[in-house]
Measured scan of single mutants.
Amino acid sequence: TEDARKEAKKIIDNGGSPDEAAKFIKKYGLSEDQARELVKRAL
């Protein structure tokens, strides 16, 4: 979702790792793979 993508970008912009961002956005109901893909797109 757009919200999850924004959250991921915010985490990374604040110095978080892509892994942290992926873990965080899994709470939106995404699978591990979906979360990682979304983080990649957010970069």
Rank of each mutant, 00 (worst) to 15 (best):
L38F: 07
S17N: 06
T1F: 15
P18N: 04
D13A: 13
E2R: 09
R36F: 10
D19S: 10
D3H: 13
K6H: 10
A4S: 02
E20S: 06
L30E: 00
I11E: 03
I25M: 08
K10H: 10
P18E: 11
D33H: 09
K40W: 14
L43V: 10
R41Q: 15
E7Y: 06
A21R: 04
K40H: 12
G15C: 15
L43T: 07
T1E: 13
V39D: 02
E20D: 13
D13F: 09
D3P: 06
E32G: 01
A21S: 03
D13M: 13
T1V: 14
D13S: 10
E7V: 11
I11A: 05
E7C: 15
Q34V: 10
K40P: 01
V39Y: 03
L30K: 00
A22F: 13
R36E: 08
K10I: 06
A35N: 01
R36D: 07
P18R: 06
E20M: 08
E37L: 08
I11Q: 03
G16F: 07
L43R: 03
E7G: 04
K9H: 08
S17T: 13
F24D: 05
E7K: 06
N14E: 11
K40A: 13
Y28H: 04
I11S: 02
A4V: 07
D33I: 09
A4H: 04
E20G: 00
F24Y: 13
L43Y: 08
A8L: 11
L43F: 08
K23A: 14
A4E: 03
L38C: 01
S31V: 00
I11V: 05
A4P: 09
K10W: 13
D13K: 11
D33F: 07
K27P: 01
E32I: 10
A4L: 14
K27Y: 06
K26T: 15
I25L: 14
S17Q: 06
P18V: 12
K23Q: 14
E37C: 12
A21C: 15
K27W: 03
T1S: 11
E37T: 03
G16S: 06
I25H: 01
R36K: 12
G15F: 06
I25Q: 01
K23D: 14
V39S: 01
L43C: 13
S31I: 00
R36W: 15
N14W: 07
P18Q: 07
E20H: 05
A35Q: 01
K27E: 06
R41N: 13
L30A: 01
Y28W: 08
R5Y: 15
K40M: 14
S31A: 03
I11N: 05
A22C: 05
Y28R: 00
E2N: 08
A4G: 02
A8S: 05
A21Y: 12
P18C: 02
R5M: 15
D13Q: 12
G16M: 09
D19Y: 12
L30T: 00
P18M: 11
L30M: 07
S17L: 07
A42D: 04
D19E: 14
G15L: 04
Y28V: 00
D33K: 09
F24S: 11
E20L: 08
G16Y: 08
I11Y: 07
A22Q: 08
I25T: 02
A21E: 03
A4M: 13
D19V: 09
L38W: 02
I12T: 02
A42F: 14
Y28P: 02
A8E: 03
K23W: 11
E37Y: 01
I25V: 08
N14L: 10
L30P: 00
N14Y: 07
E20K: 02
V39M: 04
S17I: 07
A21N: 01
E37D: 09
P18W: 11
I12N: 03
S31K: 00
I12H: 03
A8I: 15
G15R: 00
S17M: 05
R41A: 15
D3C: 15
A42P: 04
V39A: 04
G16C: 13
A22K: 08
Q34G: 02
D13I: 07
E32T: 04
R5Q: 13
L43M: 13
R36H: 10
T1K: 10
K40Q: 14
I12L: 15
F24V: 11
R5P: 04
E20A: 06
K26R: 14
K6A: 12
A42R: 01
G29E: 02
R5G: 08
A35I: 13
G29C: 13
K26W: 06
E37V: 02
K40C: 13
G16E: 04
P18G: 06
L43W: 08
L38P: 00
Y28L: 07
G15K: 04
A42Q: 09
I12R: 01
S17F: 04
Q34F: 06
L38M: 08
Q34T: 06
I11F: 11
A21K: 00
E2I: 10
L30V: 05
G29T: 01
K6T: 10
A8M: 07
E2S: 10
S31N: 10
K40E: 14
Y28G: 02
D33R: 07
K9Q: 11
K40Y: 14
E20P: 00
G29S: 00
D19T: 09
P18S: 06
F24M: 12
K10A: 11
K6P: 02
K40R: 11
N14Q: 13
N14R: 13
S17A: 05
S31W: 01
K10S: 09
G15H: 06
D33A: 11
D19I: 09
K9G: 05
N14K: 10
A22Y: 13
E7M: 13
S31D: 09
R41M: 15
A4D: 01
D13P: 04
A22R: 07
G29Y: 00
I25P: 00
E7D: 14
L43A: 07
K26S: 12
T1Y: 15
F24I: 13
D13W: 09
P18T: 08
E32V: 06
Q34I: 07
K26D: 03
E20Y: 11
L30D: 01
A8Y: 06
D3M: 15
D13R: 11
I11R: 02
G29F: 03
K6V: 10
D19F: 11
G29K: 02
K9L: 14
S31T: 13
K26V: 14
I11P: 02
D33V: 09
A22N: 05
A42N: 03
E32K: 01
D33G: 07
K26P: 02
R5N: 06
V39Q: 00
I11H: 03
L30S: 00
K23G: 09
Q34E: 14
S31L: 01
E2M: 09
L43K: 04
I11D: 02
K10Q: 10
E32A: 07
K40D: 13
Y28I: 02
G16P: 02
K9F: 09
A22V: 15
G16W: 11
D13T: 09
K23H: 11
Y28A: 02
K9R: 11
A22S: 06
I25D: 01
E2D: 11
R41S: 14
I11G: 00
A35H: 01
N14G: 12
K23S: 12
D3Y: 12
K26E: 14
L43D: 05
L38N: 00
A22W: 11
A35P: 00
K27I: 08
G29R: 00
R36Q: 11
E2K: 08
D19N: 07
E32N: 02
D13Y: 06
E2W: 11
V39T: 01
K27V: 07
G16V: 02
I12Q: 04
A8V: 14
I25N: 01
A4Q: 03
A42G: 06
K23N: 14
F24R: 10
L30I: 08
V39E: 05
A8D: 02
T1D: 12
S31H: 02
K23C: 14
D33E: 14
D19W: 12
R41H: 13
A8K: 00
A22L: 14
I25W: 04
S17D: 08
P18H: 07
L30H: 01
G15E: 03
A21M: 13
V39I: 11
A4N: 03
E32S: 06
E37K: 04
S17Y: 03
I12G: 01
T1L: 15
D3W: 14
E7P: 01
R5L: 15
I11W: 08
K23L: 12
K23V: 10
L30Y: 10
K26G: 08
K40T: 11
G16N: 03
E32P: 06
A35M: 07
A35E: 03
S17C: 00
D3F: 13
A22P: 00
V39G: 00
K6I: 12
S17K: 04
K40S: 10
K9M: 14
R41Y: 12
L43G: 05
K27G: 06
K6W: 11
T1H: 14
D3I: 14
K9N: 05
Y28N: 01
D19M: 10
K10C: 14
Y28F: 13
K9I: 12
D33Q: 11
K26Y: 08
D3L: 14
K27A: 06
N14F: 07
I12F: 05
R36A: 09
K6L: 13
R5H: 10
K6S: 09
A42I: 15
V39W: 02
